[in-house]
Lab assay of single mutants.
Amino acid sequence: SLSVDNKKFWATVESSEHSFEVPIYAETLDEALELAEWQYVPAGFEVTRVRPCVAP
């Protein structure tokens, strides 16, 4: 099958004044980091952490 098993990760994104967490959907932690950097670094943010979303 061609289905992709995307998992939810939380990326911590920082600017000079703010820090916030955004959801990233990817297959692996490395891919989540790449996606977060691709989305947020060009906008002037720094991705400081990516972690798996742990269900309660």
Rank of each mutant, 00 (worst) to 15 (best):
S1I: 10
S1D: 13
S1G: 11
S1Q: 11
S1E: 12
L2E: 11
L2M: 11
L2T: 12
L2I: 13
S3K: 13
S3M: 11
S3G: 11
S3I: 12
V4L: 10
V4T: 12
V4F: 08
V4Q: 11
V4M: 11
V4G: 13
V4I: 11
D5Y: 08
D5L: 14
D5M: 14
D5Q: 14
D5G: 15
N6M: 15
N6P: 12
N6H: 12
N6R: 14
K7M: 07
K7I: 08
K7Q: 07
K7H: 09
K7R: 09
K8I: 14
K8A: 06
K8D: 03
K8Q: 07
K8M: 15
K8W: 15
F9I: 00
F9K: 01
F9L: 01
F9V: 00
F9N: 01
W10P: 01
W10T: 03
W10M: 09
W10K: 03
A11T: 02
A11H: 01
A11S: 01
A11I: 12
A11E: 01
T12R: 08
T12V: 05
T12S: 05
V13K: 00
V13L: 13
V13T: 01
V13R: 00
E14N: 08
E14W: 07
E14C: 06
E14L: 07
E14V: 14
E14S: 13
S15F: 06
S15V: 06
S16A: 12
S16D: 08
E17I: 09
E17D: 11
E17W: 14
E17N: 12
E17R: 11
E17L: 10
E17K: 10
E17H: 14
E17G: 13
H18E: 12
H18A: 12
H18F: 15
H18W: 12
S19I: 10
S19T: 11
S19E: 05
S19C: 10
S19F: 07
F20E: 02
F20W: 08
F20H: 04
F20R: 03
F20T: 03
E21R: 04
E21H: 06
E21T: 07
E21Q: 07
E21G: 06
E21C: 07
V22T: 04
V22I: 07
V22E: 01
V22K: 02
V22H: 02
V22P: 00
V22M: 04
V22S: 02
P23Q: 09
P23G: 06
P23W: 08
P23T: 09
P23M: 14
I24D: 00
I24M: 03
I24Y: 03
I24K: 01
I24A: 01
I24P: 01
Y25H: 05
Y25S: 04
Y25L: 05
Y25P: 02
A26N: 01
A26H: 03
A26D: 00
A26I: 02
E27K: 15
E27R: 14
E27A: 15
T28R: 03
T28V: 02
T28D: 06
L29F: 06
D30W: 13
D30Y: 10
D30K: 13
D30F: 09
E31M: 12
E31I: 07
A32H: 01
A32D: 00
L33W: 15
L33M: 11
L33A: 06
E34M: 15
E34G: 08
E34R: 15
L35D: 03
L35V: 06
L35Y: 08
L35K: 13
L35N: 04
L35C: 06
L35T: 05
A36K: 01
A36R: 01
A36D: 01
A36T: 03
A36L: 06
E37K: 15
E37H: 09
E37P: 00
E37G: 04
E37F: 09
W38E: 15
W38F: 13
W38Y: 13
W38H: 15
W38M: 15
W38G: 14
Q39R: 08
Q39S: 06
Q39D: 05
Q39V: 13
Q39I: 15
Q39G: 05
Q39F: 15
Y40S: 04
Y40R: 06
Y40P: 04
Y40L: 03
Y40T: 05
Y40V: 05
Y40K: 03
V41D: 05
V41Y: 06
V41M: 09
V41P: 06
V41L: 10
P42C: 08
P42L: 09
P42G: 11
P42T: 10
P42I: 08
A43S: 08
A43V: 06
A43H: 13
G44Q: 01
G44P: 00
G44M: 00
G44Y: 02
G44K: 00
F45Q: 02
F45Y: 12
F45K: 03
F45M: 06
F45I: 02
F45V: 03
E46L: 08
E46Y: 04
E46K: 12
E46C: 06
E46M: 08
E46N: 07
E46F: 07
E46W: 10
V47Y: 00
V47W: 01
V47L: 03
V47A: 02
V47D: 02
V47I: 08
V47S: 02
V47H: 04
T48L: 05
T48R: 05
T48H: 03
T48Q: 03
T48Y: 00
T48K: 07
T48D: 02
R49S: 15
R49E: 11
R49C: 07
R49G: 14
R49M: 14
R49P: 02
V50N: 00
V50G: 02
V50S: 01
V50I: 13
R51K: 06
R51E: 06
R51T: 07
R51A: 06
P52K: 07
P52A: 11
P52G: 07
C53P: 04
C53E: 13
C53M: 06
C53S: 11
C53V: 08
V54E: 13
V54A: 09
A55K: 09
A55D: 13
A55L: 11
A55H: 11
P56A: 11
P56V: 10
P56M: 10
P56Y: 08
P56E: 11
